[in-house]
Every structure is written in structure tokens, then in C-alpha cells.
Nucleic acid binder design. Structure first.
Lengths: 192, 192
DNA sequence: CAGGTAAACTAACACTTGTTTGTATGATGC
DNA sequence: GCATCATACAAACAAGTGTTAGTTTACCTG
């Protein structure tokens, strides 16, 4: 059952993820989306209430996955370096399993309509704080240098969110390899 | 002459940078852009041939600035660590001086039309190679660890390109502070 | 076989898109 | 003072936007 036939709804979702990722939410029309799925535009409305509802489902689904993965991975660990490594691995794991959708999550959430936009921003902030906590606790424990925590989190996040490009690049690395190399780089630095 | 009155063309350019950055090229119409400038949509065409020409000017201008800044900063230095630091400082300098435009450069170039899109991609690749060169030469000289150069460049780039968010954030850091902290983090790592 | 439901369709709505045309206005150079 | 030029405008174009209405088709359940 590895390749079970997808339902129309699933196909719409998957195609939307791909198109929104490639050219952006605003640039994709319902007719183009429908054509790619193999149906007519109005038929989409049998499955999703609106274009915004489609984007919403994608964004919030991925948000939930990030939280679950983080909590499951990090819960019991205390040591700063190991803890951060686990968090990074979890984060990259979610991206790897949702390549298109996670790009939409990162870049297209701006098009969410209120009140969902506000709710989404709050979620993003909370997730960012999870990482900031790891850094700050790590500094307190003496595991990390006394860096600017906010800047460190920004650096880590942006590095992680570039993971997408690595998958699309020529030298294909596995999820594990990327997680290992990225966290090593961030923890130990480039200097010999 | 610090705040000379801007020409209409300059105002259009500046406003476009701001709006394209905030909501994306595809989401901004010529009428909205015009309204923000204080003129009517057709008047824009007295200054720019098309919407695409406007995006094109922004993207290629910034590209040129990145090249110039990199070359000026890095030319004479040989030592890997110092060289990378200078390159990072130069790159961040360009972003700092073109906050909105550089965000457009990073995120909206996908909407460029051929043949300019192809030309732009080539430029981006060349710039990436400049950094990759620094890493690889640094590894050969023994200045850097034997990391995956491609992954390191991706990490560095994405970290640098997040600089924008740091400017918009609450803890306002100066250009110098950001450059210093980011390059330290990337060179020496987080670990105590 | 009848009734209901899910999901597809065509046609159309009101509105917005980037852009062109033709024209008016106001400054500049002869 | 007259022509020229840049720049603004309103009006309009064809094409595309998200979405709704109304209808048809096919299948499941009683």
C-alpha cells in the first residue's frame, strides 16, 4: 500500500503544495491548480471552501508537525549540545517529509486571512521560543557560549529552512547527513 | 542634501521595493503601487516600460551591488577566517543599505521573465561560487574544517539573508554588530 | 428499482489584472 | 510666442481573478 491511489482531495492538496511552493500562492489561480489536478476549477470547491482554506490547511498542518516532532525529540534531554542536535534533527525531519508543504509554510503564510493569520503568527512565535529556550538554558548550563540568543535562533532557523534547496541540489544528501552536518557546523563552527 | 526630494521615478522604485517586499510581487497591482506613490497607474508607464521592468531593475541593481561589495572587500585577503569575515561583512552591508530591495532580490526574482530570468540565475550562481571558493580555498589552506562546502555555503547564505528580520526585530543591532556576531557564530560555533 | 449523496460539469458573476490609447497640462528652448 | 517635450490623466481593452448557481453523472444504500 505504498502507492495507494490518492483521493481527489489529496491530489488537490498535494498539487497546491507543489504549485504554491514553485511560484507562490498569489501567482497560482484556481483554474491552473484545477488543470494540473485534471479537473475544472469549480470542482475544487466540492473539497475546499476557498483558496484561503486550502492554504490554511497546509500551513496549520505543518505547524502541528513541527511542534509534535520537537516535543517528541527534545522532551527528556537536558545537555545543551545534544538537545539542540535533537531539535535540529526533528525540524529537518519534518521538512524532509513535507518538502513542498514546508516551503509553503515558511514563505506563503503571509497570505492567510484574519483571524487565522494572527493565530498562525502566534504559533510561529511559540515555536521560535522553544528553540530560544534551548539556547538560553544551554548558555546558563555553560554548554554554550554567551551569544546573542535571538540572533543565534535566527541563524539556526534560516539555516534549517534552507534545507529545501539542499534536497533540490545536485549533491543529494540524506536527511540524516544534512541534520548531522548542519548541527555540527552550527555547534562547532567552520574554523579548524 | 541628505533628504533631497525624490523624483517620481525614484519614488516609484522605492515604493515598489517596499510593497514587493511586504506582500510579494504577484500580490501587488499597478493600481495599488500607483496609489501609494500618489499618481494613477498609467503614469507609471511614463517611467517604466512594464511591471517586469521594474522588478528587473531592482533585482539586477542589487546583484551588481553584491558583486562590487564582495570584490572590494575580499580581493587582497588570503587567510580563510578573515576572508570569510570580510565577505560576510560586505554582504550584510549591502543588505543593510537596501533592506527592502535585497529582500525582493532574494524572494521575488522567480517572477522575472525570460530571458532575464536565466541571466539572473546565472548571476546568483556565480555569486554563490565566490563564497564556495572562499570555503574551499580555506579548507585547502587548513584554515577550515573539512566540511561539505556546498552545505556550508547554503548555511551561510541563509543565515545572512535572514539579516532582514533582525533589522525589523525589537533588539535593534547595528550592521557591525550583526556582521560580527554572525561571522563569529559561523566560524567558532555555539559550543562552549 | 427509488432516493440520496458526492463530485464533476458548464455558464456566468462581479471584479481585478497589466497595459494602451488619446488627450490635457505645464515647463523648457528657440 | 510657438513648438517640443515630459509627464500626468481618464477611459477602455482583453484576459484573468475567486467564486456561485444550476445541472448532470455515477455510485451507494434501502
Amino acid at each position: 500500500m505504498a502507492t495507494a491511489t490518492l483521493s481527489t482531495k489529496q491530489t488537490i492538496r498535494q498539487t497546491a503544495e507543489k504549485l504554491f511552493q514553485e511560484r507562490g500562492y498569489a501567482a497560482i489561480g484556481m483554474r491552473e491548480l484545477a488543470r494540473e489536478v485534471g479537473i475544472e476549477a469549480p470542482s475544487i470547491y466540492n473539497h475546499y471552501k476557498s483558496k484561503d482554506a486550502l492554504l490554511r490547511e497546509i500551513c496549520f498542518d505543518i505547524a502541528e508537525q513541527f511542534f509534535k516532532a520537537f516535543d517528541a525529540a527534545v522532551m527528556e534531554e537536558e545537555k545543551g549540545g545534544k538537545k539542540l542536535k535533537l531539535a535540529i534533527r526533528a525540524h529537518i525531519g519534518v521538512i524532509a517529509n513535507n518538502i513542498d508543504a514546508s516551503e509553503v509554510f515558511f514563505n506563503e503564510w503571509v497570505f492567510l486571512e484574519e483571524p487565522h493569520l494572527a493565530k498562525f503568527k502566534k504559533l510561529r512565535y511559540e515555536y521560535e521560543m522553544r528553540f530560544r529556550d534551548v539556547i538560553e538554558k544551554g548558555i546558563k548550563r555553560g554548554d554554550f557560549k554567551k551569544v546573542n540568543a535571538k540572533l543565534a535562533v535566527f541563524t539556526i532557523f534560516s539555516a534549517l529552512n534552507a534545507t529545501y534547496d539542499l534536497y533540490n541540489s545536485t549533491e543529494r544528501l540524506t536527511e540524516e547527513e544534512i541534520a548531522e552536518e548542519v548541527s555540527n557546523l552550527l555547534l562547532k563552527g567552520l574554523k579548524a
